[in-house]
Design a protein around this nucleic acid. Structure first.
Length: 299
DNA sequence: GTTATTTGACCTGG
DNA sequence: CCAGGTCAAATAAC
């Protein structure tokens, strides 16, 4: 039934939001107390839970979060073997054989530094598609990104297609922060799927009603100025650290819960969220549960 | 002067 | 032939 599915969706959404907020508060408390080492609720664990929470929420809305399109889909356009002499020609299609993934987000900022190399009007699309490559292309990094502004999900939604992965040190600022310095095998975590806007004001002028020209102006200025500022002024600045980011996360959750509609139901969910705060609850199990849910959705 | 963006031309696959 | 992806000269910004 329609009503039941909507109710279930709300339950899932609110449950995830509460879980994420609890994790954020714990992480913030740990940071304020200067706890940085591992433990039953290590920062790394908490971060993973927060990231999973965001992803879960987005997936509740049926957003294709980090959907791996992969070569299976892309290769439906069967390629002819390419003669060596033809490889360096203009417009040469190399990307189709590489791993790709598609994200739909409300910001195209992802902490990486991209250089725009093209823009194209797309048939039946209201906004042009912008093409970016990693700024460290000259170091051999082949990562590409396409950004297409959407309108069907409300103001300022972007479909971002990532093609290939970074081989350079153009590391996501958020990712870098969660790398344990002594253990480089620690999994990378990123917040690409989150709703965090590092510079909301820079995006606020992009509205659904904007013209292509204004989108272009805004988009392009951010492609260079905004995106470049993210890693350079925030990521490497001593003024923008772990604590600031966690505070932003906490504020994001707080903003969400300001919504009266959700707020009314929050109390009902404290029972389930208390599972996360109970000392008897094994964190590893929780992460495993989240990962299993994630896997179920995207397998 | 250097670096990034713009934009029309060029190229490929369907 | 067309739509979409890339190139590269011209231009802008710093």
């Amino acid at each position: 039934m329609e009503g039941n599915s909507t109710t279930n969706m709300r339950k899932t959404l609110i449950g995830e939001l509460i879980r994420g907020r609890d994790c954020t508060e714990k992480l913030q408390n740990q940071l304020l107390r200067g706890v940085v080492d591992g433990g039953p609720e290590s920062p790394e664990d908490l971060v993973m839970k927060i990231a999973a929470s965001f992803s879960e929420c987005l997936s509740t809305f049926s957003y294709p979060v980090s959907t791996y399109v992969g070569s299976a889909c892309l290769d439906k356009r069967k390629k002819k073997p390419e003669p060596a002499a033809v490889k360096d020609r203009r417009g040469c299609y190399k990307r189709k054989t590489e791993d790709s993934r598609v994200e739909i987000t409300d910001t195209y900022e992802d902490g990486y530094a991209w250089r725009k190399y093209g823009q194209k009007e797309i048939l039946h699309a209201k906004f042009p598609r912008c093409y970016y490559r990693c700024t460290h292309k000259d170091e051999g990094c082949k990562a590409l990104r396409q950004v297409q502004q959407l309108e069907e999900y409300g103001p300022a939604k972007y479909r971002i297609t990532y093609i290939g992965s970074h081989t350079c040190q153009n590391m996501n600022v958020n990712t870098q922060m969660f790398l344990a310095p002594e253990d480089h095998s620690f999994s990378l975590i990123n917040f690409k799927n989150s709703s965090i806007k590092h510079s909301p004001s820079s995006l606020s002028t992009v509205t659904n009603g904007d013209t292509i020209a204004s989108f272009k102006q805004h988009h392009d200025s951010n492609a260079q100025g905004g995106n470049y500022l993210a890693p350079s002024s925030q990521g490497t600045s001593s003024n923008y650290g772990f604590e600031d980011m966690i505070t932003n996360l906490d504020l994001s959750y707080t903003d969400i819960f300001k919504n009266d509609d959700l707020n009314g139901e929050c109390a009902n969910y404290h029972a389930s969220s208390s599972q996360a705060t109970s000392p008897n609850y094994v964190w590893e199990d929780m992460v495993t549960d989240l990962e299993l849910s994630y896997d179920d959705i995207f397998k």
